[in-house]
């Protein structure tokens, strides 16, 4: 490999980042407040969001139970099992809720977005749209991006709600802790603007990241079966990594 080829290889991730950024700009540039954009976005919200609901809720419930179990185990040693709801609530709202929901969403919806768009490309549907003077970025990419942006915060909220329920079931139902203490600890210890809103902001960013990556890889997939396959793989890998990186960045800068 020559030096220039090495430099080119080293700069490739940077170029990819640039292309994804430009694609985002192109999508936002095609955003027009029309009824068809709204209808398409709603439809995609159902396809990417509502269909991820069941898996998100099941996972949320069990994460809540296991968090409560671990927290009670650890806190009992200090005679502080009263604090369980605080520990569960804070860690859920700040970290686990947004991050786990985002990772589940990347696996459940990100892949299907990338595969669907990739397949549309492989079968010439995107081409056909372009030739009908319909912008496929506006028609196909943008609604999916917006739907992801909208869905992930909502899914995160449902994940958190079910996780709190899971913690309630375990710590009140199984361990027999006092429910008044449980709720009052949450209501005095978990701060709305730092913990709750911080989590919402995070999940909004994660939703945007995942759907942007999925839409980008789908749209730029090679028009073959293998191309669509690698687009879905790349989507899961890159969006999961980005979610964790951005989680660290946001946590360290905004709290």
């Amino acid at each position: 490999m020559t030096d220039s080829a090495k430099i080119a290889a080293a700069l490739r991730p940077l170029g990819d980042t640039g292309r994804i950024g430009l694609f985002l700009l192109r999508m936002l540039g095609s955003l027009r407040p029309t009824r068809s954009t709204l209808v398409n976005t709603l439809q995609q919200t159902y396809l990417v969001g509502a269909r991820s609901l069941v898996i998100i809720m099941i996972c949320g419930f069990f994460v809540g139970m296991v968090l409560a179990l671990q927290a009670i185990n650890a806190l009992e040693q200090f005679g502080a099992s009263d604090q369980v709801s605080l520990l569960v609530g804070k860690s859920l709202f700040r970290e686990l809720g947004p991050v786990l929901t985002a990772l589940l969403f990347a696996g459940r919806a990100g892949t299907s977005i990338a595969a669907e768009i990739g397949l549309m490309k492989a079968t010439g549907q995107l081409d056909a749209m372009e030739l009908m003077a319909i912008d496929p970025v506006e028609r196909i990419a943008l609604p999916r991006f917006l739907a992801g942006l909208l869905s992930v915060p909502l899914l995160t909220a449902m994940f958190n709600a079910l996780a709190i329920l899971g913690a309630v079931v375990f710590s009140l139902g199984v361990m027999g802790l006092d429910s008044g203490i449980f709720w009052s600890k949450l209501q005095t210890g978990v701060y709305f603007d730092q913990d709750f809103m911080g989590g919402i902001w995070k999940s909004l960013v994660f939703g945007g990241l995942i759907s942007l990556v999925a839409v980008y890889f789908g749209y730029h997939a090679r028009p073959t079966g293998a191309g669509v396959g690698s687009a879905t793989t790349n989507t899961v890998v890159l969006s999961s990594v980005l979610v964790l990186i951005f989680d660290f960045i946001m946590t360290s800068f905004f709290t």
Partner: peptide
Amino acid sequence: FLLLGILAMIWLATRATNY
């Protein structure tokens, strides 16, 4: 779906935070 998500947010905000 949208309604459920918003309800979950409101429930969390009022029941599980100091809101």
